[in-house]
Design a protein around this nucleic acid. Structure first.
Lengths: 346, 346
DNA sequence: TAAAATAACTTAATCGTTAAAGTGATTTTA
DNA sequence: TAAAATCACTTTAACGATTAAGTTATTTTA
């Protein structure tokens, strides 16, 4: 039952453990004949290196932590899939954590990851003024932000990130609503501590301004990125006497909650209410859902962030420059805004 | 930059490392005064134990591997959420892996997990005659099967598992279709090497038999559990001249693919085609989808399997008995079968 | 052909922690 | 009150790998 160690092989072959180690790791200092004998014997005995021992001396765990708010959110699970595949392809392993939108949880997770000697962290839950980012910096652990970043240019300069052009995406979405003739537009916003929500809001605001439209303050609701919260927020907004004719929603998963609220209030989409989402999760394209939205390839983002992190881990001696990838967005017109019914009016 | 170790604290306080270790791990042999001094100093210096060192001596990694086919499948992500929360609550960490439906990948993952000294594995991808199960047994690593199990009673006796009463669920689903008057029924099956597909098929077959209905062989298609594959399978079945009036589909995510195929073929659900799914993922209840299905609480399954595994890890000295949890199912009637239109005819 | 270099090894130290086996000093027991 | 037990520590060894620093024997160089 006891695992085979390097010592067992050494005893069998009557050579030193160093030679075994060198042979198995393709290092010089071992002759052809002995090397082959060792490799064969290791295979025969079913030798598997002990990663604790290896990690203790090499200070490398080949483990990467991925922190998401909630893996059951399709946005995150798609992102996790991309990250996981890339991480494994590059010879690492992924540990997954859910913060459940709690900064406290996030902190615990980061501390734990550090104490476990995790090689790096992909963080998708960063908030502005997040003390956990300072923690990451202090501990000098390689990390990459994905999806959300830090906007403060003073801090952002040193931080690697993979994100989407949320500003541009939201600008397109808002423009779409305006051109369809909507003027009474509501916004269901995520968490205004999150960069994407901030940029999304800026983008739509700028578009609205260009059309001379101003958003009534009571039609802007910040509710967090979950489906359930968005459902509740929409219920509130749609119950108003002077309800909006269109809602711009800062995430497709949230938009699904909004849809439910609309149907529950007997409002037809898009006839009574136009809605536009924001990240094109796979559900959005389903028949019967057909949510108009803005693309964001989560899978690619996951891959790119993992790749970036591992590059960083491997080339630690590099200059102080940081990598930033910002992905383009594209408006996907489906049936939740009424374009296919009426087309643009302006 | 170098991490604080037990030695650093020992040097500061002029005591031995053993005393530090004992104090920090609440072990006897340390006086009150010294103990408190040590705890305080450790906190002050920001000491974090090195898990490689700890694991090397204790042979415990506090890491658990969760193996799923594809985390982007809502069934799996919900399951992963439950597992992750329970695993963390119990002081462990979860490493996530996607097999992408490949037995080869599964093998690689298991081997890697073992070589890393993972404390245990939750496996959701088990197949009948799966050599990887034998591998797990040989290596004596604690594991629990979730969702899918091994049916062969000779092997199953020793295996812990958390599953759903697939037979009963499918029996209910098939009965529902029969009572609605359907006789030309097709089955979109998952992977007949997976226990749930096998039991699901048995359950529906038995129900059909009771109603004197036999399934035309060309209307039974085994296509694997993915949405895309189910889409393709449904396209094939629906293109037949003598197409079925109802489809029983062995998974909600698959059913979503089937829906798309139906709509693409200009078939209305439920008027032209009744469909019934199988695990009640959250999407299924969405307005516009409203899939009739059979409940399976993935979140609870994830939790239960994690709990079971950790119980097993902690109490290794126990008897040879195995734990098996089988969860009940419930038919959820929504709008994809036409019950709300016509009710039962028999 | 003697000195230097190289190849193929081994020995010993190390990573950070825990466990087993001491060591005195103090307290309990008979 | 002498022997036994307890307490609060320390010293040493171990976990399984890697790495730095030897040690031979063999080959190369000048």
């Amino acid at each position: 039952m006891n695992r085979i160690t390097i010592k067992d092989i050494a005893r069998q072959l009557e050579v030193s453990t160093t030679t075994i180690s060198n042979a198995l790791n393709d290092k010089p200092g071992v002759g052809m004949v002995v090397r082959e004998k060792i490799v064969k014997m290791a295979r025969k005995m079913g030798y598997q290196p002990n990663y604790f021992a290896k990690g203790l001396v090499s200070r490398q765990s080949f483990a990467i932590g991925l922190i998401v708010s909630n893996i059951a959110d399709p946005f995150n699970s798609e992102l996790a899939l991309g990250a996981q595949e890339k991480i494994n392809d590059l010879g690492y392993n992924m540990m997954l954590f859910n913060t459940k939108h709690s900064n406290e949880n996030e902190k615990r997770i980061i501390e734990m990851l550090i104490s476990r000697g995790t090689d790096g962290i992909v963080l998708s839950t960063a908030l502005q003024d997040d003390p956990n980012i300072d923690l990451l910096n202090e501990m000098q652990i390689p990390y990459v932000l994905v999806n959300r970043l830090i906007l403060n240019p003073k801090k952002a300069g040193r931080i690697d990130s993979v994100s989407v052009d949320s500003y541009g995406g939201s600008y397109k979405a808002a423009t779409h609503l305006c051109r369809l003739g909507h003027t009474k537009i509501g916004i269901i916003a995520g968490d205004m501590q999150a960069s994407n929500a901030i940029l999304l809001t800026q983008g739509s605001n700028d578009a609205f301004a260009e059309f001379g439209i101003s958003i009534r303050p009571d039609l802007f609701v910040e509710c967090g990125f979950s489906r359930r919260k968005a459902f509740q927020a929409a219920q509130g907004i749609l119950a108003k006497k002077n309800r909006p004719t269109a809602l711009l929603i800062q995430g497709d998963n949230m938009a699904l909650g909004v849809r439910e609220a609309a149907y529950k209030a007997s409002l037809k989409i898009p006839e009574d209410l136009a809605i536009i989402g924001c990240d094109d999760i796979s559900i959005s394209s389903l028949a019967g859902i057909e949510l108009t939205t803005v693309t964001q390839n989560q899978y690619k983002m996951g891959m790119a962030s993992a790749q970036m992190l591992i590059n960083k881990i491997k080339g630690q001696n590099q200059s102080g420059s940081s990598s930033k990838i910002v992905m383009e967005t594209e408006l996907i017109i489906r049936n939740s805004c009424g374009f296919n019914l009426r087309g643009y009016v302006r």
